[in-house]
């Protein structure tokens, strides 16, 4: 008896579109924390490459393959985006694999206005030279922890990962700041 209740609920209210800025929630995305076991980072890199066809990024970067993207969130730590936790089983010998699909709300922000809006939000340099496509920053917006990912250069596109319990507070702030 599964009556569709396994469908994840949205974390955010809807954002009406604004000129030069589209903000949309990405609901139901698989998010898994992958942490290399001590001294196993090279081994993890090899397994990820053979099993998933992706080169694990060094540092706070995003690398995307066909079905999965990895986002660096700390030394030896990544978020694996796009495949359910079971698909990461081959990594289990060399890494901790922890499903976080329920933990995050994910927003995509696109358009010239996205850069301006985020400039009001995060205290990091968003200039193309400093935060081009593939850049990742785990930081804070108005006391709320977020991971910000630049997914595309033009038009500027970003993804914002925020823990679910803070999603509404962040949404309220975004609404006000978008004006």
């Amino acid at each position: 008896m599964s009556d569709g209740w396994t469908r994840p609920a949205p974390a955010f209210p809807a954002f009406p579109p604004r000129p030069g800025l589209a903000v949309e929630e990405i609901v139901g995305r698989s998010i898994v924390t992958v942490v290399a076991r001590a001294g196993q980072e090279a081994a993890l890199r090899a397994v990820v490459e053979t099993a998933l066809g992706v080169l694990l990024p060094e540092g706070p970067r995003r690398v995307a393959g066909q079905e999965i993207a990895f986002i660096g969130i700390g030394p030896g730590k990544w978020l694996a985006i796009g495949l359910p936790v079971a698909a990461l089983a081959p990594l289990a010998d060399v890494a901790a694999i922890v499903d976080q699909s329920g933990a995050y709300g994910v927003l995509s922000l696109t358009g010239a206005g996205a850069r301006r809006l985020l400039g009001r939000a995060v205290a990091i340099d968003l200039d193309d030279a400093a935060f081009g496509a593939g850049s990742v920053a785990t930081t804070i917006i108005e006391h709320v922890g977020v991971t910000l990912v630049r997914t595309a250069a033009t038009p500027p596109a970003y993804e914002l990962y925020v823990v679910r319990s803070y999603a509404r507070s962040l949404a309220h702030w975004l609404h006000e700041t978008m004006g």
Binding site: G59, P60, G74, P75, A123, I124, A137, T138, T139, I140
Partner: peptide, 10 residues
């Protein structure tokens, strides 16, 4: 060393 330059309040 991992994240880059950040404000001290982080």
């Amino acid at each position: 060393p991992y994240c880059g330059e950040r404000d001290a309040h982080e």
